[in-house]
C-alpha cells in the first residue's frame, strides 16, 4: 500500500482537519437522518391517526394533525365489522407454514449447492440465479389451472405448498452463507462416517442461524403480504386471508375510513413486532450471508 509512506507531520494536521469536518458533517448527517426517518414514518402515523378519529372528526376540513380524542374503541369496531380474527388466523397459518417450508427447502437446496462438490454444480446454479428474475405473474394462469386440477382452489394449499420447492432468492442467500461453513468440520464428520443428510442438519444447520432467520423474515413478510395469490385462489370469506378480507371490507358501502385504517393497523402490527424482535439477526444474517 503506497499510502503508508506519508510524512508524519502532515498526518497530524490531517487528523485535526478531519475531526472538524466530521463534527459538521455529523450534525448535518443527523439532521438529514432524522428528517428522512420522519418522512418515512408519516404515512404510518397518518394511518394510526386516521384510525383514531371519530366519524365526525373525519368529516372536518382541513383534517386535524392529532385526533381530538383517542377513539380506542375503533379497533373493536373494525375487528367486528368483518371476520377479522378468522382471516387473521388464515394469514397466520399461511405465513407460518409457508415460512417453515420455504426456509427448510431452500436450506437443503443451498446445502446441495454449497457443501457438496458435484460436477456441473455451478452451471446449474446459474439457472437458479436466472429464475430470480423471471416475472412470476407469467405463471399465474398455468399454475391456477394446475391447482384447479388438483382441487386446491378455495383452500390455502396453493399459497403454502409451492414454498416447499425452495425459492431462488433464499437459496442464493443461504448458499452464499454456507460457502463459508467450516469445511474441516464437515470433512471430519464425513471421515466419521456421518451421512451427508446428517451433516447437513447436525453439523451445518446450527451454525447458520443468523442467515436462516434473515431468510425466515423475508419469507414471512412475503407470505403475509401476498395479494395476488389469495385474490385468485380464495373466494370464500372463511378461507380468505387478511389481504382479501381488507379489500372486501373496503369495497363494502358502509365501511368508514377510520375502521379501514384501524384494520390496516392491526394487519401491519404483527410484521412490525416480528421485525423488532429479530432486527439484529436480520441485518447480521444478510451481512454474513449476502453480498460479499
Amino acid at each position: 500500500m503506497s499510502t503508508a509512506a506519508t510524512a508524519p507531520g502532515r498526518r497530524v494536521s490531517l487528523k485535526t482537519q478531519n475531526r472538524v469536518r466530521r463534527t459538521t458533517t455529523g450534525i448535518i448527517a443527523r439532521a438529514i437522518l432524522i428528517a428522512v426517518s420522519l418522512l418515512f414514518l408519516v404515512p404510518l402515523y397518518w394511518m394510526v391517526i386516521t384510525a383514531m378519529k371519530t366519524d365526525e372528526e373525519l368529516a372536518d376540513f382541513p383534517p386535524s394533525l392529532l385526533p381530538q380524542s383517542w377513539n380506542w374503541s375503533i379497533f373493536g369496531e373494525a375487528v367486528n365489522a368483518f371476520p377479522f380474527w378468522l382471516q387473521f388466523g388464515n394469514s397466520l397459518l399461511v405465513t407460518v407454514l409457508g415460512t417453515v417450508l420455504a426456509v427448510l427447502s431452500s436450506y437443503v437446496v443451498a446445502y446441495g449447492f454449497a457443501c457438496i462438490d458435484w460436477p456441473g454444480r455451478d452451471k446449474v446454479f446459474y439457472l437458479v440465479l436466472a429464475t430470480i428474475f423471471i416475472p412470476f405473474p407469467v405463471a399465474i394462469i398455468p399454475l391456477f389451472d394446475l391447482f384447479a386440477w388438483l382441487g386446491w382452489v378455495n383452500t390455502l394449499l396453493p399459497l403454502i405448498v409451492p414454498n416447499a420447492l425452495g425459492s431462488a432468492f433464499y437459496i442464493f442467500l443461504l448458499r452464499q452463507f454456507l460457502l463459508q461453513a467450516s469445511v474441516e468440520a464437515m470433512d471430519a464428520a464425513r471421515v466419521d462416517g456421518a451421512s451427508e443428510w446428517r451433516i447437513c442438519w447436525q453439523v451445518v444447520f446450527p451454525t447458520a442461524r443468523g442467515a436462516l432467520i434473515a431468510v425466515a423474515i423475508f419469507a414471512a413478510v412475503a407470505s403475509w403480504n401476498d395479494f395476488l395469490g389469495p385474490l385468485i385462489y380464495l373466494q370464500d370469506p372463511s378461507v380468505q386471508t387478511l389481504a382479501i378480507g381488507l379489500q372486501s371490507f373496503s369495497t363494502e358501502t358502509d365501511t368508514s375510513f377510520n375502521q379501514l385504517m384501524a384494520a390496516s393497523t392491526l394487519t401491519v402490527l404483527p410484521m412490525v413486532v416480528l421485525f423488532i424482535f429479530f432486527q439484529r439477526y436480520f441485518v447480521k444474517g444478510l451481512n454474513v450471508g449476502g453480498f460479499r
Partner: peptide, 8 residues
C-alpha cells in the same frame, strides 16, 4: 371464474 374453474 376462478371458483367455477376450480370446481368450487
Amino acid at each position: 371464474i376462478t371458483a367455477v374453474r376450480g370446481g368450487t
